[in-house]
Design a protein around this nucleic acid. Structure first.
Lengths: 240, 240
DNA sequence: CGGCAATTTGATATCCATCAATCGGTGTGG
DNA sequence: CCACACCGATTGATGGATATCAAATTGCCG
Protein backbone atom coordinates (compact mmCIF):
# COMPACT_ATOMS: atom_id res chain seq x y z
CA UNK A 1 0.00 0.00 0.00
CA UNK A 2 1.48 3.33 -1.07
CA UNK A 3 2.36 5.77 1.64
CA UNK A 4 0.04 8.75 1.81
CA UNK A 5 1.37 12.02 0.48
CA UNK A 6 2.50 14.32 3.24
CA UNK A 7 -0.56 16.45 3.70
CA UNK A 8 -0.09 20.17 3.85
CA UNK A 9 -1.10 21.43 7.22
CA UNK A 10 -2.87 24.59 6.27
CA UNK A 11 -4.86 25.69 9.27
CA UNK A 12 -8.34 26.85 8.52
CA UNK A 13 -8.27 30.56 7.86
CA UNK A 14 -9.28 32.17 11.11
CA UNK A 15 -9.20 35.60 9.56
CA UNK A 16 -10.81 37.28 12.57
CA UNK A 17 -7.52 36.75 14.39
CA UNK A 18 -6.22 39.87 12.64
CA UNK A 19 -7.72 41.85 15.53
CA UNK A 20 -4.60 40.74 17.38
CA UNK A 21 -2.22 42.14 14.77
CA UNK A 22 -1.79 45.42 16.61
CA UNK A 23 -2.73 44.13 20.03
CA UNK A 24 -0.48 44.56 23.04
CA UNK A 25 1.48 41.51 24.06
CA UNK A 26 1.87 40.18 27.56
CA UNK A 27 4.54 37.82 28.82
CA UNK A 28 3.59 35.25 31.39
CA UNK A 29 5.60 33.27 33.90
CA UNK A 30 4.55 29.69 34.68
CA UNK A 31 1.51 29.71 36.95
CA UNK A 32 0.65 33.32 36.18
CA UNK A 33 -3.08 33.99 36.00
CA UNK A 34 -4.58 35.55 32.88
CA UNK A 35 -8.28 35.13 33.67
CA UNK A 36 -9.94 34.49 37.01
CA UNK A 37 -13.39 32.94 37.11
CA UNK A 38 -16.02 35.51 38.01
CA UNK A 39 -14.25 38.53 36.50
CA UNK A 40 -16.07 40.63 33.88
CA UNK A 41 -15.46 39.03 30.50
CA UNK A 42 -14.22 42.09 28.68
CA UNK A 43 -11.07 40.81 27.02
CA UNK A 44 -10.17 38.12 24.52
CA UNK A 45 -6.76 36.58 23.97
CA UNK A 46 -4.68 34.84 21.37
CA UNK A 47 -1.79 32.60 22.33
CA UNK A 48 1.47 33.65 20.69
CA UNK A 49 3.79 31.15 22.34
CA UNK A 50 3.81 28.77 25.28
CA UNK A 51 1.08 26.63 26.80
CA UNK A 52 -1.82 27.67 29.06
CA UNK A 53 -4.57 25.81 30.85
CA UNK A 54 -8.26 26.58 31.18
CA UNK A 55 -9.69 25.39 34.51
CA UNK A 56 -12.88 25.25 36.42
CA UNK A 57 -12.46 24.79 40.15
CA UNK A 58 -15.41 23.80 42.31
CA UNK A 59 -16.17 25.40 45.64
CA UNK A 60 -14.90 22.22 47.32
CA UNK A 61 -11.55 22.43 45.53
CA UNK A 62 -12.05 19.84 42.82
CA UNK A 63 -10.47 21.12 39.65
CA UNK A 64 -11.19 20.19 36.05
CA UNK A 65 -8.77 21.33 33.37
CA UNK A 66 -11.19 22.07 30.54
CA UNK A 67 -8.52 22.56 27.91
CA UNK A 68 -4.91 23.36 27.26
CA UNK A 69 -4.17 26.28 24.96
CA UNK A 70 -1.41 26.27 22.35
CA UNK A 71 0.03 28.91 19.99
CA UNK A 72 -2.67 30.20 17.67
CA UNK A 73 -5.50 29.34 20.03
CA UNK A 74 -8.15 31.86 20.93
CA UNK A 75 -9.79 32.22 24.34
CA UNK A 76 -12.04 34.58 26.21
CA UNK A 77 -15.45 34.90 24.59
CA UNK A 78 -18.42 33.89 26.72
CA UNK A 79 -22.20 34.08 26.46
CA UNK A 80 -22.26 35.64 29.93
CA UNK A 81 -21.01 38.90 31.36
CA UNK A 82 -18.35 37.17 33.41
CA UNK A 83 -15.81 34.43 32.81
CA UNK A 84 -16.81 31.07 34.27
CA UNK A 85 -13.31 29.60 34.01
CA UNK A 86 -9.75 30.54 34.86
CA UNK A 87 -6.79 30.65 32.53
CA UNK A 88 -3.19 30.27 33.74
CA UNK A 89 0.18 29.84 32.11
CA UNK A 90 1.67 26.35 32.22
CA UNK A 91 4.99 27.34 30.64
CA UNK A 92 6.46 30.79 30.08
CA UNK A 93 4.11 32.19 27.48
CA UNK A 94 3.26 35.22 25.42
CA UNK A 95 -0.30 36.25 24.64
CA UNK A 96 -1.97 39.01 22.65
CA UNK A 97 -4.76 40.85 24.47
CA UNK A 98 -7.69 42.56 22.82
CA UNK A 99 -10.82 44.25 24.21
CA UNK A 100 -13.86 42.14 23.60
CA UNK A 101 -15.75 44.96 21.88
CA UNK A 102 -13.04 45.09 19.22
CA UNK A 103 -13.81 41.49 18.39
CA UNK A 104 -17.52 42.31 18.44
CA UNK A 105 -16.97 45.18 16.03
CA UNK A 106 -14.77 43.10 13.76
CA UNK A 107 -17.34 40.32 13.56
CA UNK A 108 -20.25 42.71 13.09
CA UNK A 109 -18.48 44.57 10.28
CA UNK A 110 -17.27 41.57 8.30
CA UNK A 111 -19.51 38.61 7.53
CA UNK A 112 -16.51 36.58 6.41
CA UNK A 113 -14.84 37.07 9.77
CA UNK A 114 -18.02 36.15 11.58
CA UNK A 115 -18.32 33.06 9.44
CA UNK A 116 -14.75 32.12 10.27
CA UNK A 117 -15.41 32.62 13.94
CA UNK A 118 -18.49 30.45 13.79
CA UNK A 119 -16.44 27.79 12.10
CA UNK A 120 -13.89 27.91 14.87
CA UNK A 121 -16.68 27.49 17.41
CA UNK A 122 -17.93 24.42 15.58
CA UNK A 123 -14.44 22.95 15.71
CA UNK A 124 -14.21 23.74 19.41
CA UNK A 125 -17.49 21.94 20.05
CA UNK A 126 -16.31 18.88 18.16
CA UNK A 127 -13.07 18.79 20.11
CA UNK A 128 -14.88 19.07 23.44
CA UNK A 129 -17.21 16.26 22.44
CA UNK A 130 -14.16 14.08 21.91
CA UNK A 131 -13.19 14.91 25.47
CA UNK A 132 -16.68 14.01 26.68
CA UNK A 133 -16.40 10.62 25.00
CA UNK A 134 -13.02 10.04 26.62
CA UNK A 135 -14.17 11.02 30.09
CA UNK A 136 -17.35 9.00 29.84
CA UNK A 137 -16.15 5.83 28.14
CA UNK A 138 -12.40 5.39 28.15
CA UNK A 139 -10.10 3.80 30.73
CA UNK A 140 -7.15 5.57 32.34
CA UNK A 141 -4.49 4.37 29.90
CA UNK A 142 -6.75 4.91 26.91
CA UNK A 143 -7.22 8.50 28.02
CA UNK A 144 -3.49 8.95 28.38
CA UNK A 145 -2.91 7.51 24.90
CA UNK A 146 -5.41 9.99 23.51
CA UNK A 147 -3.67 12.77 25.41
CA UNK A 148 -0.22 11.91 24.09
CA UNK A 149 -1.53 11.89 20.53
CA UNK A 150 -3.16 15.24 21.23
CA UNK A 151 0.20 16.69 22.33
CA UNK A 152 1.85 15.18 19.28
CA UNK A 153 -0.79 16.80 17.14
CA UNK A 154 -0.06 20.24 18.60
CA UNK A 155 3.65 19.75 18.22
CA UNK A 156 3.01 18.97 14.59
CA UNK A 157 0.95 22.09 14.12
CA UNK A 158 3.20 24.51 15.97
CA UNK A 159 6.35 23.18 14.32
CA UNK A 160 4.49 22.93 11.04
CA UNK A 161 5.65 19.42 10.29
CA UNK A 162 3.83 18.33 7.18
CA UNK A 163 4.91 14.70 7.23
CA UNK A 164 3.17 12.57 9.84
CA UNK A 165 6.25 10.33 9.88
CA UNK A 166 8.70 13.13 10.49
CA UNK A 167 11.24 11.70 12.93
CA UNK A 168 10.94 14.78 15.12
CA UNK A 169 7.41 13.62 15.91
CA UNK A 170 8.76 10.52 17.64
CA UNK A 171 9.57 12.73 20.62
CA UNK A 172 6.58 14.16 22.43
CA UNK A 173 7.15 17.05 24.82
CA UNK A 174 4.92 17.15 27.87
CA UNK A 175 5.05 20.68 29.22
CA UNK A 176 2.50 20.27 32.03
CA UNK A 177 2.72 18.48 35.38
CA UNK A 178 1.24 15.08 36.14
CA UNK A 179 -1.41 16.81 38.22
CA UNK A 180 -2.45 19.03 35.31
CA UNK A 181 -2.75 15.95 33.13
CA UNK A 182 -4.73 14.16 35.84
CA UNK A 183 -7.17 17.05 36.22
CA UNK A 184 -7.62 17.18 32.47
CA UNK A 185 -8.25 13.44 32.14
CA UNK A 186 -10.46 13.10 35.21
CA UNK A 187 -7.84 10.99 37.04
CA UNK A 188 -5.40 11.37 39.94
CA UNK A 189 -1.72 12.07 39.43
CA UNK A 190 -0.68 8.64 40.75
CA UNK A 191 -2.97 7.00 38.21
CA UNK A 192 -1.40 9.08 35.45
CA UNK A 193 2.03 7.85 36.54
CA UNK A 194 0.86 4.25 36.52
CA UNK A 195 -0.72 4.69 33.10
CA UNK A 196 2.60 6.00 31.74
CA UNK A 197 4.19 2.88 33.18
CA UNK A 198 1.57 0.72 31.51
CA UNK A 199 2.12 2.27 28.09
CA UNK A 200 5.84 1.79 28.60
CA UNK A 201 5.35 -1.84 29.64
CA UNK A 202 3.33 -2.31 26.45
CA UNK A 203 6.33 -0.93 24.50
CA UNK A 204 4.28 1.87 23.00
CA UNK A 205 6.34 4.63 24.54
CA UNK A 206 9.58 5.17 26.41
CA UNK A 207 9.79 7.77 29.17
CA UNK A 208 12.67 10.22 28.77
CA UNK A 209 12.58 12.29 31.90
CA UNK A 210 9.38 13.76 33.24
CA UNK A 211 8.64 16.00 30.31
CA UNK A 212 9.26 13.92 27.26
CA UNK A 213 8.36 10.52 25.86
CA UNK A 214 9.56 8.74 22.77
CA UNK A 215 6.87 6.99 20.73
CA UNK A 216 7.99 3.44 19.98
CA UNK A 217 4.83 2.11 18.40
CA UNK A 218 2.57 4.78 17.01
CA UNK A 219 0.13 2.29 15.48
CA UNK A 220 -0.52 0.58 18.80
CA UNK A 221 -0.85 3.90 20.56
CA UNK A 222 -3.44 5.02 18.03
CA UNK A 223 -5.17 1.71 18.35
CA UNK A 224 -5.36 1.98 22.13
CA UNK A 225 -6.60 5.56 21.84
CA UNK A 226 -9.30 4.36 19.45
CA UNK A 227 -8.53 7.25 17.19
CA UNK A 228 -10.99 6.02 14.61
CA UNK A 229 -13.81 6.94 16.96
CA UNK A 230 -12.87 10.60 17.00
CA UNK A 231 -14.47 13.52 15.29
CA UNK A 232 -11.27 15.47 14.78
CA UNK A 233 -9.54 13.14 12.31
CA UNK A 234 -12.25 14.08 9.84
CA UNK A 235 -11.01 17.65 9.97
CA UNK A 236 -7.34 17.19 10.54
CA UNK A 237 -6.75 14.11 8.45
CA UNK A 238 -3.83 11.92 9.54
CA UNK A 239 -2.88 14.45 12.09
CA UNK A 240 -3.59 12.40 15.18
CA UNK B 1 -24.88 18.61 18.46
CA UNK B 2 -25.98 19.35 21.93
CA UNK B 3 -28.63 21.33 23.44
CA UNK B 4 -28.92 25.01 22.92
CA UNK B 5 -31.26 26.82 25.24
CA UNK B 6 -34.44 28.07 23.74
CA UNK B 7 -35.32 30.91 25.89
CA UNK B 8 -38.94 31.02 26.82
CA UNK B 9 -38.21 32.55 30.20
CA UNK B 10 -36.12 35.58 29.37
CA UNK B 11 -33.25 35.66 26.87
CA UNK B 12 -33.39 37.11 23.36
CA UNK B 13 -34.90 34.83 20.75
CA UNK B 14 -32.89 32.59 18.47
CA UNK B 15 -34.26 34.39 15.46
CA UNK B 16 -32.47 32.16 12.95
CA UNK B 17 -34.92 29.43 13.91
CA UNK B 18 -37.42 31.05 11.56
CA UNK B 19 -35.88 28.95 8.79
CA UNK B 20 -38.00 26.18 10.25
CA UNK B 21 -41.25 28.14 9.96
CA UNK B 22 -42.11 26.64 6.60
CA UNK B 23 -40.04 23.50 6.97
CA UNK B 24 -41.52 20.04 6.52
CA UNK B 25 -42.24 18.18 9.74
CA UNK B 26 -41.38 14.60 10.47
CA UNK B 27 -42.91 12.38 13.12
CA UNK B 28 -40.69 9.92 14.89
CA UNK B 29 -41.39 6.74 16.81
CA UNK B 30 -39.23 5.90 19.84
CA UNK B 31 -35.86 4.60 18.71
CA UNK B 32 -36.25 5.99 15.19
CA UNK B 33 -33.01 7.28 13.69
CA UNK B 34 -32.81 10.85 12.41
CA UNK B 35 -29.07 11.09 11.79
CA UNK B 36 -26.54 8.30 11.41
CA UNK B 37 -22.88 9.01 12.05
CA UNK B 38 -20.93 9.16 8.79
CA UNK B 39 -23.77 10.45 6.62
CA UNK B 40 -23.32 13.69 4.65
CA UNK B 41 -24.24 16.57 6.94
CA UNK B 42 -26.70 18.28 4.62
CA UNK B 43 -29.66 18.83 6.90
CA UNK B 44 -30.36 20.66 10.12
CA UNK B 45 -33.25 20.07 12.51
CA UNK B 46 -35.34 21.76 15.11
CA UNK B 47 -37.17 19.78 17.77
CA UNK B 48 -40.89 20.55 17.82
CA UNK B 49 -41.95 18.04 20.47
CA UNK B 50 -40.60 14.96 22.23
CA UNK B 51 -37.09 14.07 23.34
CA UNK B 52 -34.14 12.85 21.26
CA UNK B 53 -30.63 11.70 22.06
CA UNK B 54 -27.31 12.54 20.41
CA UNK B 55 -24.85 9.62 20.60
CA UNK B 56 -21.40 8.66 19.63
CA UNK B 57 -20.78 4.94 19.50
CA UNK B 58 -17.23 3.58 19.37
CA UNK B 59 -16.19 0.77 17.08
CA UNK B 60 -16.10 -1.50 20.11
CA UNK B 61 -19.68 -0.72 21.04
CA UNK B 62 -19.14 1.75 23.86
CA UNK B 63 -21.72 4.48 23.58
CA UNK B 64 -21.66 8.01 24.94
CA UNK B 65 -24.87 10.01 24.90
CA UNK B 66 -23.51 13.48 24.14
CA UNK B 67 -26.76 15.30 24.76
CA UNK B 68 -30.50 14.98 24.98
CA UNK B 69 -32.56 17.27 22.77
CA UNK B 70 -35.77 18.98 23.90
CA UNK B 71 -38.41 21.11 22.15
CA UNK B 72 -36.83 24.20 20.69
CA UNK B 73 -33.39 22.67 20.41
CA UNK B 74 -31.41 22.84 17.21
CA UNK B 75 -29.18 20.09 15.86
CA UNK B 76 -27.26 19.20 12.76
CA UNK B 77 -24.56 21.73 11.95
CA UNK B 78 -20.99 20.44 11.81
CA UNK B 79 -17.61 21.76 10.78
CA UNK B 80 -17.12 18.64 8.65
CA UNK B 81 -18.85 17.29 5.58
CA UNK B 82 -20.35 14.40 7.49
CA UNK B 83 -22.09 13.95 10.82
CA UNK B 84 -19.89 12.46 13.52
CA UNK B 85 -22.79 11.57 15.81
CA UNK B 86 -26.14 9.86 15.59
CA UNK B 87 -29.49 11.26 16.62
CA UNK B 88 -32.41 9.06 17.61
CA UNK B 89 -35.84 9.61 19.12
CA UNK B 90 -36.22 8.71 22.78
CA UNK B 91 -39.96 9.37 22.92
CA UNK B 92 -42.42 9.87 20.07
CA UNK B 93 -41.28 13.15 18.64
CA UNK B 94 -41.83 15.69 15.91
CA UNK B 95 -39.01 17.55 14.23
CA UNK B 96 -38.71 20.22 11.55
CA UNK B 97 -36.17 19.48 8.80
CA UNK B 98 -34.33 22.07 6.78
CA UNK B 99 -31.55 21.80 4.17
CA UNK B 100 -28.29 23.03 5.57
CA UNK B 101 -27.74 25.52 2.76
CA UNK B 102 -30.94 27.29 3.76
CA UNK B 103 -29.43 27.91 7.17
CA UNK B 104 -26.20 28.99 5.49
CA UNK B 105 -28.09 31.46 3.32
CA UNK B 106 -30.11 32.77 6.24
CA UNK B 107 -27.00 33.37 8.31
CA UNK B 108 -25.10 34.91 5.41
CA UNK B 109 -27.95 37.30 4.57
CA UNK B 110 -28.73 38.51 8.09
CA UNK B 111 -25.99 39.55 10.51
CA UNK B 112 -28.50 39.56 13.37
CA UNK B 113 -29.35 35.93 12.69
CA UNK B 114 -25.71 35.01 12.50
CA UNK B 115 -25.07 36.80 15.76
CA UNK B 116 -27.94 34.89 17.36
CA UNK B 117 -26.55 31.63 16.06
CA UNK B 118 -23.12 32.42 17.40
CA UNK B 119 -24.67 33.17 20.74
CA UNK B 120 -26.39 29.82 20.76
CA UNK B 121 -23.07 28.13 20.00
CA UNK B 122 -21.49 29.89 22.97
CA UNK B 123 -24.27 28.63 25.22
CA UNK B 124 -23.81 25.14 23.82
CA UNK B 125 -20.11 25.24 24.64
CA UNK B 126 -20.81 26.36 28.20
CA UNK B 127 -23.34 23.58 28.67
CA UNK B 128 -20.92 20.96 27.39
CA UNK B 129 -18.20 22.25 29.69
CA UNK B 130 -20.58 21.67 32.59
CA UNK B 131 -20.87 18.09 31.39
CA UNK B 132 -17.08 17.82 31.20
CA UNK B 133 -16.79 18.96 34.81
CA UNK B 134 -19.40 16.41 35.87
CA UNK B 135 -17.77 13.52 34.04
CA UNK B 136 -14.32 14.43 35.26
CA UNK B 137 -14.96 15.37 38.86
CA UNK B 138 -18.34 14.28 40.17
CA UNK B 139 -19.41 11.00 41.80
CA UNK B 140 -22.27 8.84 40.52
CA UNK B 141 -24.99 10.27 42.74
CA UNK B 142 -23.77 13.82 42.21
CA UNK B 143 -24.05 13.29 38.47
CA UNK B 144 -27.56 11.93 38.87
CA UNK B 145 -28.54 14.94 41.00
CA UNK B 146 -27.26 17.24 38.27
CA UNK B 147 -29.17 15.24 35.70
CA UNK B 148 -32.46 15.43 37.58
CA UNK B 149 -32.11 19.20 37.91
CA UNK B 150 -31.35 19.35 34.21
CA UNK B 151 -34.60 17.50 33.43
CA UNK B 152 -36.45 19.80 35.81
CA UNK B 153 -34.96 22.76 34.01
CA UNK B 154 -36.24 21.51 30.67
CA UNK B 155 -39.66 20.79 32.08
CA UNK B 156 -39.70 24.33 33.31
CA UNK B 157 -38.78 25.72 29.91
CA UNK B 158 -41.10 23.57 27.82
CA UNK B 159 -44.07 24.12 30.12
CA UNK B 160 -43.02 27.76 30.48
CA UNK B 161 -43.29 27.82 34.26
CA UNK B 162 -41.99 31.15 35.39
CA UNK B 163 -42.02 30.39 39.09
CA UNK B 164 -39.21 28.17 40.28
CA UNK B 165 -41.44 26.99 43.13
CA UNK B 166 -44.36 26.05 40.94
CA UNK B 167 -45.75 22.84 42.50
CA UNK B 168 -45.78 21.16 39.09
CA UNK B 169 -41.99 21.27 39.21
CA UNK B 170 -41.99 18.91 42.18
CA UNK B 171 -42.63 16.09 39.74
CA UNK B 172 -39.80 15.35 37.34
CA UNK B 173 -40.55 13.23 34.29
CA UNK B 174 -37.77 10.95 33.12
CA UNK B 175 -38.52 10.02 29.53
CA UNK B 176 -35.36 8.01 28.83
CA UNK B 177 -34.24 4.56 29.98
CA UNK B 178 -31.75 3.88 32.75
CA UNK B 179 -29.26 2.84 30.10
CA UNK B 180 -29.62 6.15 28.24
CA UNK B 181 -29.03 7.97 31.51
CA UNK B 182 -26.03 5.76 32.26
CA UNK B 183 -24.47 6.38 28.85
CA UNK B 184 -25.00 10.11 29.30
CA UNK B 185 -23.47 10.19 32.78
CA UNK B 186 -20.57 7.84 32.02
CA UNK B 187 -21.97 5.13 34.33
CA UNK B 188 -23.65 1.72 34.02
CA UNK B 189 -27.37 1.27 34.34
CA UNK B 190 -27.08 -0.67 37.61
CA UNK B 191 -25.11 2.21 39.10
CA UNK B 192 -27.80 4.63 37.98
CA UNK B 193 -30.39 2.50 39.78
CA UNK B 194 -28.31 2.45 42.92
CA UNK B 195 -27.81 6.19 42.75
CA UNK B 196 -31.56 6.71 42.54
CA UNK B 197 -31.85 4.55 45.62
CA UNK B 198 -29.22 6.64 47.37
CA UNK B 199 -30.99 9.94 46.62
CA UNK B 200 -34.18 8.34 47.86
CA UNK B 201 -32.47 7.10 51.02
CA UNK B 202 -31.25 10.67 51.56
CA UNK B 203 -34.90 11.82 51.31
CA UNK B 204 -34.12 14.13 48.42
CA UNK B 205 -36.44 12.38 45.98
CA UNK B 206 -39.11 9.74 45.93
CA UNK B 207 -39.37 7.33 43.00
CA UNK B 208 -42.83 7.17 41.42
CA UNK B 209 -42.59 4.43 38.83
CA UNK B 210 -39.68 4.21 36.44
CA UNK B 211 -40.28 7.47 34.66
CA UNK B 212 -41.05 9.96 37.34
CA UNK B 213 -39.62 11.18 40.62
CA UNK B 214 -40.99 13.61 43.17
CA UNK B 215 -38.52 16.11 44.55
CA UNK B 216 -38.76 16.13 48.33
CA UNK B 217 -35.82 18.39 49.14
CA UNK B 218 -34.78 20.66 46.31
CA UNK B 219 -32.22 22.53 48.38
CA UNK B 220 -30.32 19.35 49.27
CA UNK B 221 -30.51 18.12 45.70
CA UNK B 222 -29.02 21.38 44.47
CA UNK B 223 -26.42 21.21 47.14
CA UNK B 224 -25.40 17.67 46.19
CA UNK B 225 -25.31 18.68 42.53
CA UNK B 226 -23.04 21.57 43.44
CA UNK B 227 -25.09 23.84 41.28
CA UNK B 228 -23.09 26.86 42.34
CA UNK B 229 -20.15 25.49 40.36
CA UNK B 230 -22.00 25.60 37.09
CA UNK B 231 -21.76 28.03 34.23
CA UNK B 232 -25.39 27.83 33.23
CA UNK B 233 -26.94 29.43 36.31
CA UNK B 234 -25.28 32.66 35.24
CA UNK B 235 -27.41 32.61 32.11
CA UNK B 236 -30.55 30.96 33.34
CA UNK B 237 -30.68 32.32 36.83
CA UNK B 238 -32.42 30.12 39.38
CA UNK B 239 -33.49 27.81 36.65
CA UNK B 240 -31.55 24.81 37.82
C1' DC C 1 -53.93 -12.98 33.31
C1' DG C 2 -49.46 -14.03 31.33
C1' DG C 3 -45.13 -12.96 29.38
C1' DC C 4 -41.47 -10.08 28.29
C1' DA C 5 -38.37 -6.34 28.94
C1' DA C 6 -36.70 -2.99 31.94
C1' DT C 7 -35.38 -2.21 36.41
C1' DT C 8 -33.92 -3.34 40.85
C1' DT C 9 -31.29 -5.86 43.98
C1' DG C 10 -27.48 -8.89 45.44
C1' DA C 11 -22.68 -10.87 45.32
C1' DT C 12 -18.30 -10.36 43.67
C1' DA C 13 -14.49 -8.39 40.85
C1' DT C 14 -11.88 -4.54 38.94
C1' DC C 15 -10.15 -0.25 38.49
C1' DC C 16 -8.92 3.77 40.31
C1' DA C 17 -8.28 6.65 44.64
C1' DT C 18 -6.06 7.23 48.77
C1' DC C 19 -2.42 7.08 51.96
C1' DA C 20 2.37 6.46 52.67
C1' DA C 21 7.20 5.93 51.51
C1' DT C 22 10.89 6.35 48.37
C1' DC C 23 13.12 8.07 44.33
C1' DG C 24 15.26 11.49 41.41
C1' DG C 25 16.29 15.59 39.53
C1' DT C 26 17.36 20.60 40.47
C1' DG C 27 19.14 24.27 42.83
C1' DT C 28 21.73 26.09 46.71
C1' DG C 29 25.14 26.83 49.93
C1' DG C 30 29.11 25.07 52.26
C1' DC D 1 32.53 20.05 43.61
C1' DC D 2 29.76 17.81 46.60
C1' DA D 3 26.15 17.44 50.39
C1' DC D 4 21.79 18.50 51.30
C1' DA D 5 17.11 19.90 50.91
C1' DC D 6 13.08 20.35 48.31
C1' DC D 7 9.46 19.24 45.18
C1' DG D 8 7.41 16.62 41.75
C1' DA D 9 7.15 11.92 40.29
C1' DT D 10 7.14 7.13 41.09
C1' DT D 11 6.14 3.06 43.51
C1' DG D 12 3.81 0.27 47.04
C1' DA D 13 -0.11 -1.18 50.02
C1' DT D 14 -4.71 -0.76 50.91
C1' DG D 15 -9.49 0.91 50.52
C1' DG D 16 -13.61 2.35 48.18
C1' DA D 17 -16.50 3.32 44.28
C1' DT D 18 -18.22 1.54 40.33
C1' DA D 19 -18.44 -2.43 36.98
C1' DT D 20 -19.73 -6.97 36.18
C1' DC D 21 -22.32 -11.03 36.59
C1' DA D 22 -26.42 -13.11 38.21
C1' DA D 23 -30.89 -13.45 40.06
C1' DA D 24 -35.45 -11.46 41.60
C1' DT D 25 -38.92 -8.08 40.83
C1' DT D 26 -41.72 -4.72 38.65
C1' DG D 27 -44.63 -3.02 35.46
C1' DC D 28 -46.21 -2.73 31.02
C1' DC D 29 -48.69 -4.53 26.93
C1' DG D 30 -50.90 -7.81 24.67
Amino acid sequence: MPAPEPTSLDLPQDIFLDIFDAAPLRDLAPGEVVISAGEPADQVFNIVSGVLRVCRTGTDGRRQVLSFLFPGNFVGLTATETYFFSVEAVTPARIACCPRRLLDKRLAADPAAERAFLNMMLRVVEDILDVVYSLGQRTASERLAVFLLYLRHWRRLTDNLADDRDPRLAEIDIPMSREDIADFLGLKKETVSRSFKELEAGRMIQRRGKHQVRVLDLASLRDLAGIRDFASPRRIAQSL
